[in-house]
C-alpha cells in the first residue's frame, strides 16, 4: 500500500483517537494535580421550613459561596501536587498498618479494598474464561453438524445481553426470596441469604462475568479451530498421539496468538469491572477501582463532586491496566514477529 493511501485510511481514526482518547487523558492527568473550589464565606442564615401547625425557623451559621461581579460563583484553582493521589492511597495509614503487622486493615482504605477486588476479579476470571471458552469451542467443533447452529446460537446469548441488564437479572434471581435462592434453600435444607455477606456476592460476580464473557472466548477459539492444519492432525494420529496429546501439541500451539488476544481483551475489560458493583449493589462489601472513580464523580444532594480525586483514581486505574497488559502485549509482539 502506498504511504499516502495508508495515511488516508488511518488518519480519520487517528484523529478520533487524538480527540476522544488522548486529549481527555491529558486533561484528566492535568486535573489530578489541581483542585478547583468555590470561595466560601460564613454567614448567619435564618431558614424557615414547614412544621405543624406553624413553620419552624432556625438561625444557623452556614458556608455560602461568594459571587463575583457577574453573579457567578467565585472559584480558585490551586496546584496541590500529588495531594489527590495521597488522599486516595493514604500511604501513611497503610504504612502504619504494615508496621503493626495488621495487614488485613489495609483494606479499610477504599482504594486498596477496590484494588484487592479488581485484581482478584481479573485474575480469577481470566483462566476460567479461557478454559471454559476453549471447552465449549472443542465441544461444538466435535458436535454433530446438525445441532451445531443452535448450540452456537445458544452459547452466544449471554454475550448479547447488555451487561447491566444481565447483572440485574442475576440479582433478581437471588435477592431475598428469589427463585434460585428458594431452590437452593430447598436443595440444601437451610436458610440462605446471598446478599448478606461479601463472599457470596463476590462469588455471584465471578459467576456472572464468566457466564457473560465465555461466549466471546468461545467464538474466537471456534473460528481458530476451523483453521487447524488437518494434515498435521492426521500425521499426529499416525504417530500414535492420543486426543490429549493432539490438543496439547497441535491445537493449543495453533491457537496461541488467539489465546493471547482473548487474554488481552479480557484483562482490559475485567480490570474496568463496574456493572457488577452497580447491578449487585455490593458497595458495602465489595468495590472496584472503576466504581470508586464513578462514586467521586457522582454529585451529592448539595452538588459536590470530587473531580480531583476522581482524576487521580482514573489515572491510577489506567496505570494498573498498563502494568497488567505488559506481559501479554510483549507476548503478542513476539508472536507477531515470529510469524513474519
Amino acid at each position: 500500500m502506498k504511504p499516502r493511501v495508508f495515511a488516508a485510511f488511518v488518519a480519520p481514526s487517528l484523529l478520533m483517537m487524538l480527540i476522544f482518547i488522548a486529549a481527555p487523558l491529558v486533561s484528566v492527568f492535568g486535573q489530578s494535580f489541581y483542585v478547583t473550589q468555590p470561595v466560601y464565606e460564613q454567614v448567619e442564615v435564618e431558614t424557615c421550613t414547614p412544621g405543624f401547625p406553624t413553620a419552624n425557623c432556625v438561625t444557623e451559621t452556614k458556608s455560602q459561596p461568594v459571587f463575583d461581579a457577574e453573579g457567578r460563583i467565585e472559584t480558585r484553582t490551586i496546584f496541590v501536587g500529588l495531594d489527590s493521589y495521597r488522599n486516595l492511597l493514604q500511604l501513611d495509614r497503610v504504612g502504619g498498618y504494615l508496621a503493626s503487622g495488621d495487614w488485613g486493615a489495609i483494606l479499610n482504605v477504599d482504594f486498596w479494598a477496590a484494588l484487592r477486588f479488581t485484581l482478584m476479579f481479573t485474575l480469577i476470571t481470566l483462566p476460567i474464561v479461557l478454559v471454559l471458552g476453549l471447552t465449549i469451542a472443542l465441544a461444538v467443533n466435535n458436535a454433530v453438524k446438525a445441532i451445531r447452529g443452535p448450540v452456537i446460537f445458544m452459547s452466544l446469548l449471554p454475550f448479547i445481553i447488555t451487561p447491566v441488564i444481565g447483572a440485574l437479572s442475576i440479582r433478581w434471581l437471588f435477592i431475598g426470596d428469589g427463585i434460585l435462592t428458594v431452590a437452593l434453600e430447598q436443595l440444601l435444607d437451610r436458610d440462605i441469604a446471598m446478599f448478606a455477606q461479601g463472599w457470596t456476592i463476590e462469588l455471584m460476580m465471578y459467576f456472572y462475568r464468566v457466564w457473560h464473557v465465555a461466549p466471546f472466548a468461545f467464538v474466537i477459539f471456534y473460528a481458530g479451530l476451523q483453521t487447524v492444519n488437518q494434515d498435521t492432525l492426521e500425521s499426529a494420529i499416525v504417530d500414535g498421539a492420543n486426543r490429549w496429546q493432539r490438543l496439547k501439541f497441535v491445537v493449543i500451539p495453533h491457537l496461541g496468538p488467539l489465546i493471547t488476544f482473548v487474554a488481552l481483551i479480557h484483562l482490559m475489560d475485567a480490570y474496568r469491572v463496574f456493572e457488577e458493583i452497580v447491578g449487585f449493589s455490593s458497595q458495602s462489601h465489595v468495590i472496584s477501582l472503576q466504581w470508586l472513580t464513578y462514586d467521586f464523580l457522582q454529585p451529592d444532594d448539595a452538588g459536590n463532586r470530587a473531580i480531583s480525586r476522581a482524576s487521580a483514581s482514573a489515572m491510577l486505574t489506567m496505570i494498573g491496566i498498563v502494568i497488567l497488559l505488559i506481559a501479554p502485549v510483549r507476548r503478542a509482539w513476539r508472536e507477531h514477529k515470529g510469524v513474519r
Binding site: 421550613t49 452556614k62 458556608s63 479499610n108 458497595q283 444532594d301 448539595a302
Partner: peptide, 21 residues
Amino acid sequence: AYPSTTAMGLMHTALGNGVAA
C-alpha cells in the same frame, strides 16, 4: 428539618459509604 448545607451533602456521602463497615 434535614439541613440544606453543602457540608451536609459531603457528610451524607461519607456516611453512606462508611457506616456499613
